[in-house]
Write a protein that binds this DNA or RNA. Structure first.
Lengths: 199, 199
DNA sequence: ACTACACCGTAACATCTGTTACCGTAACGA
DNA sequence: TCGTTACGGTAACAGATGTTACGGTGTAGT
C-alpha cells in the first residue's frame, strides 16, 4: 500500500481552525480559505477531509459540544454532592476568561449560522437541550424547591448562563468575571432556594 | 428643480428589508442584492441611499434599537408605578410572539455581524448598555432589595432577557411564551424581593 | 530499488460579492 | 410646454467564494 492514512486528527485540527476563524472573523468571515490558512494547509486538504463546507461546520459544532460536555462531566464527578456539582457546572460554563470568552463568540457564530441552515439549527437545539437536561438532573438530585418544576428552573438557569455569555461576548468590559458570578449567584439562589410562599 | 427628493422614508424601508433578510437568511445571507429584492428595488437605490453596506447596517441597527426604545418608553409612561413598569418592560422584551421572535433572530444576526466589525460592536454595546441603564433606573425607582447593588441586579435581569431571547431564537419549540414568562418571573423575584438573610 | 497508489497542494471553474459608472426617465420650475 | 436635473435602474468590474479536476510527491509493500 502507498501513503499511510487520513486521520480523525485532521478533522480535529480543522475544527479547531474553524473555532479560531469564527472567534475573530465571525460567520461572514468563516471561509474555507480562512480556515485552511489557520490550519496551515490548503483548501484542498479541507475538502478532501470533508465533503463540503457544511460537513466541516457540523463536525466543528459537535466538537464544541463535546468539549463542554466532557468538562461538565468532569466537574460533576469531582463534586461532593449534586448541589455543588450544579454550582460548578454553571459557573464553569460562564465566559470568565479569554478562552471561554472566545468560546462564547464561537457559540454565537454557530447560532447565527444556524439561522440560515436548518440542519445546523437542529444540531444547535439538540446541544442546548442536552445542557438543559443536565441542569434538570442536577436540580432534581439536589432536592429543594419544588414550587416550580425542575424543568422550568433549569430553563431559567440555562437562560441566565446563555444571557451572560451572549452579553459578555458583545461587550466584555461590562461583564468581568465578578459580575458574571454575581448574576448567576442570584439566579442560582432563586432556582434552588427551599420553597417559600410567594411574596 | 427637477425630480423631488430622496427621503428618510427610503432609509426606513431599506432597514426594514435588512430585518427581513437577516431574520430568515442570517448574517451570511445578508447581501445587498437580497436586501434590494426584499425592498422591491435594485442595488442601485441601496447604494445611492447609503454610502456602503456598513452604513446600511449601522442605520438598521439604530432603527432596531429605536423601535424597542419607543416601545419601552410607552410601557413606562403607561405604568402605574415603577415596579409594574419594570415588569412590563421586561416581559415585553421577550420573544413571545412570532414578530418578536423574528426580532430576536435579527438581534443575533447583528451581534454575529458585530463579531467581525468593531464599529458595529461598539454600537451593539451602546444599545445593550442603554437597556441595562433603563433597568437600573426602574429598579432604583421601585425601591426594595439593596443587599445587592441595583446595577448588578439590572445586569442579571438583562442577562435573563437576553438568554431567553437567544435560546428561543435557536429553539422556539422549547420556549413557548409561558416558559419565557415563568423564567423571568423567577429572576424578577430574585432581583426585586426585599432583602432577606442568605439561606 | 522500484512500482503503485493514496495524499494533498495548485489551479481552474462558475457563481456571487460589494462597488462603480453610465444613462434613461420622470418630475418640477419656468 | 419644455428644459433641467436629480433619481434610480442596468450592467459592468475586480475580487472572493465554494467546489472540482488534475498532477506532483512521498511512502509502503514487494
Amino acid at each position: 500500500m502507498p501513503r499511510v492514512r487520513d486521520d480523525e486528527a485532521t478533522r480535529q485540527r480543522l475544527s479547531e481552525a474553524v473555532f479560531l476563524t469564527l472567534a475573530d472573523r465571525g460567520p461572514t468571515g468563516l471561509t474555507l480559505r480562512a480556515v485552511a490558512e489557520r490550519a496551515g494547509c490548503s483548501t484542498g486538504l479541507v475538502l478532501h477531509t470533508f465533503r463540503d463546507k457544511r460537513e466541516l461546520l457540523l463536525h466543528a459544532r459537535d466538537v464544541l459540544h463535546e468539549r463542554t460536555r466532557v468538562r461538565s462531566d468532569a466537574l460533576e464527578s469531582d463534586a461532593a454532592d449534586a448541589a455543588t456539582a450544579l454550582r460548578d457546572v454553571v459557573f464553569h460554563a460562564l465566559p470568565s476568561d479569554s478562552e471561554k470568552l472566545a468560546e462564547a463568540r464561537v457559540w454565537i457564530g454557530f447560532l447565527a449560522a444556524a439561522l440560515s441552515d436548518p440542519i445546523l439549527a437542529e444540531r444547535h437545539a439538540l446541544h442546548s437541550r442536552a445542557f438543559a437536561t443536565r441542569l434538570v438532573r442536577l436540580l432534581e438530585a439536589s432536592g429543594a424547591s419544588d414550587a416550580v418544576g425542575a424543568r422550568e428552573r433549569a430553563s431559567t438557569l440555562a437562560a441566565a448562563v446563555e444571557g451572560v455569555s451572549t452579553l459578555a461576548a458583545g461587550d466584555p468590559e461590562r461583564w468581568p468575571a465578578s459580575r458574571q458570578r454575581q448574576a448567576l449567584e442570584l439566579v442560582l439562589e432563586a432556582t434552588t432556594a427551599v420553597a417559600r410562599p410567594i411574596a
